[in-house]
Simulated assay, not measured.
Amino acid sequence: VAENLVDDLLSVLQERLAMSFFPVLQPAIGVGSAFEGWNRRVRNAVYCLLVPLKPPQGHTFLLELGTADHMLEKTYRIRVELKCTCMREELLENTLCFRHHPQEELRRNLAASLLGTLCTGSYLDVLKTAQWFKEQVRSAWRETPHLRRSIMKVLPSSRSCKLQLTNDSGRRLSIEMVFGVQQGKSDIFLSSHTTEDTFIPSTMWAESYAVAEVKFFRHIATQAPHDTFHLKCLQLCANMLVGTGISTYIMKTVAMHLLNTIPLANWSRTDRLMRVEDILRYLHSCLEDKRLNHFFCGNENMPEDFILPPDFQTAEPINLLQYLVEDPAAYAMAMREFDELQN
């Protein structure tokens, strides 16, 4: 339901923005636990979808790696540059080359364009992009009859677009749309959403593996026997973390490592308790060692159908538990919480 609704909404926006110089909205990609199949909050699920952005005509996106070495996730700035479209101008009427036409001739176009509206300096701004998108959503919703079947409320969010929809029967649906720019043709995106608690400038976009992760779970689904219980195992383990400081992302990463090493035939209903024990044992070992390698970065044991940036698999692995190395109190708390899980 969430995917269909977002598809309908994006179709309206794509048609409205077709002749503009704003980002070109691509079909949304469902990401996160709700689309991976192990969401632990079925009734109150938040359906997260990534909306890829492509540069409009006459523009190009250049990705510049940030310098925040203290952060676990890489950040990038997206520089927006004008490119020559003189050849296109000769073929199409009412088309101006942003690079070679006099500035005053383009002023009206630029005032309502990507550089003039959504950038800070020459860099795509997350906050401005999110605000612009929310305004587009509100306008499209009001003017599209079939979307107005539900009452739509835009919830506060600075780096995404969160919607709460209520139908005639009072049932609510929560959707969050984040924005992404694809790294080349890979499964890795730069995302408006960040998992870091620290402040990130509005022109910084975080490297996201969410699309690759949902692709991994779909890959497993195609390879696994029909009675495989890997999702139930992960869901059970994630539920055990409620009330602790250990994130479900840590648990998911542990499960992904094990799914990539333990034969899928050994994740059946009869094996499920052993696999849960394996997950918890692996997690305990990682907590003790204060180290859990990121699943994609530096992992050379990846299925062939994944498209990753060059040198991604041979890069130095990212330690998702680095914070335990740097914070003895957090380490003591994590070990104490894990002990409580087993009691």
Rank of each mutant, 00 (worst) to 15 (best):
V6I: 14
S11N: 15
Q14K: 13
E15G: 09
R16H: 09
L17V: 06
F21A: 10
V24M: 11
Q26G: 06
A28S: 14
A28Y: 00
I29G: 00
V31N: 00
V31E: 00
G32A: 11
E36D: 14
W38G: 00
R40W: 11
R43K: 15
Y47E: 00
Y47K: 01
L49T: 03
K54F: 14
K54Q: 15
P56D: 10
P56Y: 08
G66N: 10
A68Y: 07
D69E: 12
L72Q: 05
T75A: 01
R79A: 13
V80K: 05
L82Y: 04
K83W: 09
M87L: 10
R88C: 08
E90M: 07
L91W: 08
L92P: 03
F98D: 01
R99A: 08
H100E: 05
L106C: 07
L106M: 12
R107A: 14
N109Q: 10
S113A: 08
S113V: 00
S113Y: 01
L115Y: 01
G116K: 01
G116R: 00
T117H: 05
L118I: 07
S122C: 03
Q131E: 10
R138D: 15
A140P: 01
R142W: 07
E143T: 06
R148V: 11
R149P: 02
R149T: 15
S150L: 12
R159Q: 07
R159L: 04
C161N: 02
C161T: 11
K162P: 01
D168M: 13
S169M: 11
R172C: 13
G180I: 04
Q182E: 14
Q182Y: 08
Q183L: 11
I188W: 01
I188T: 07
F189W: 12
S192L: 04
Y209A: 11
A210S: 15
V211T: 10
R218I: 02
I220P: 00
I220C: 08
T222P: 02
T222R: 15
Q223P: 03
H226P: 00
F229R: 15
L231M: 15
L236M: 13
V242Y: 13
I246Y: 04
L258R: 02
I262G: 01
A265M: 07
W267Y: 12
V276Y: 06
D278K: 13
I279M: 14
L280N: 06
S285L: 15
C286V: 06
E288Q: 14
D289A: 14
D289L: 10
D289F: 03
R291F: 10
H294K: 02
H294F: 02
C297P: 01
P303V: 15
E304S: 08
I307E: 09
I307Q: 09
I307R: 14
P309E: 06
F312I: 05
A315T: 10
A315W: 06
P317Y: 06
L320M: 13
Q322D: 06
Y323K: 07
V325E: 10
E326M: 07
A330I: 04
R336K: 14
D339E: 09
L341D: 03
Q342W: 12
